[in-house]
Simulated assay, not measured.
Amino acid sequence: MYGPNGFRVVKPGHFVVCAMSGVPVPLEELRYWSVERQEAYASAEFSTRRALEDL
């Protein structure tokens, strides 16, 4: 579960999948996510692209 200041693992695993690219992102490298959409992103670029879709 993605929160505004961090995330909580709700299902055991070592990675999440980027919502934009499908690339696996290791949990220790996860830096970008959307609280509203509950999605993870592999990079700031993917996070920004997704946010711009709402404009």
Results as ranks from 00 to 15, higher is better:
Met1Arg: 11
Gly3Val: 13
Pro4Ala: 13
Phe7His: 09
Phe7Ser: 11
Phe7Asp: 06
Phe7Tyr: 15
Arg8Asp: 14
Arg8Met: 13
Arg8Leu: 14
Val9Asp: 13
Val9Pro: 06
Val9Trp: 15
Val10Ala: 14
Val10Gln: 15
Lys11Thr: 12
Lys11Gln: 14
Lys11Gly: 06
Pro12Ser: 04
His14Glu: 14
His14Leu: 15
His14Ser: 15
Phe15Asn: 12
Phe15Met: 13
Val16Gly: 00
Val17Tyr: 03
Val17Asp: 07
Val17Thr: 10
Val17Gln: 00
Val17Ile: 14
Cys18Gln: 04
Cys18Thr: 02
Cys18Tyr: 03
Cys18Ala: 07
Ala19Pro: 09
Met20Asp: 05
Met20Cys: 14
Ser21Thr: 15
Ser21Val: 05
Gly22Val: 02
Gly22Ser: 01
Gly22Pro: 00
Gly22Arg: 02
Val23Ala: 09
Val23Pro: 03
Pro24Tyr: 00
Pro24Trp: 07
Val25Gly: 07
Pro26Arg: 06
Leu27His: 10
Glu28Ala: 14
Glu29Met: 00
Glu29Leu: 03
Glu29Trp: 07
Glu29Asn: 01
Glu29Lys: 10
Leu30Arg: 04
Leu30Gln: 06
Leu30Asn: 00
Leu30Glu: 00
Arg31Val: 04
Arg31Thr: 10
Tyr32Phe: 08
Tyr32His: 12
Trp33His: 00
Trp33Arg: 03
Ser34Arg: 00
Val35Asn: 05
Val35Glu: 13
Glu36Gly: 04
Glu36Thr: 06
Glu36Ser: 06
Glu36Cys: 05
Glu36Asp: 14
Arg37Leu: 02
Arg37Glu: 15
Arg37Asn: 08
Gln38Asn: 04
Gln38Phe: 00
Glu39Ser: 05
Glu39Gln: 08
Glu39Asn: 03
Ala40Gly: 08
Tyr41Met: 03
Tyr41Trp: 00
Tyr41Lys: 01
Tyr41Ala: 03
Tyr41Ile: 04
Tyr41Ser: 04
Ala42Tyr: 06
Ser43Val: 01
Ser43Ile: 03
Ser43Cys: 01
Ala44Thr: 04
Glu45Trp: 08
Glu45Ala: 11
Phe46Asp: 05
Phe46Trp: 07
Phe46Pro: 02
Phe46Glu: 08
Phe46Asn: 10
Ser47Lys: 10
Ser47His: 12
Ser47Tyr: 14
Thr48Lys: 01
Thr48Ala: 07
Arg49Lys: 11
Arg49Ser: 06
Arg49Asp: 01
Arg49Met: 14
Arg49Glu: 09
Arg50Tyr: 06
Arg50Glu: 02
Arg50Asn: 03
Arg50Pro: 00
Arg50Ser: 10
Glu53Phe: 02
Glu53Cys: 09
Glu53Pro: 03
Glu53Trp: 10
Asp54Lys: 15
Asp54Tyr: 07
Leu55Gln: 12
Leu55Ala: 13
Leu55Met: 11
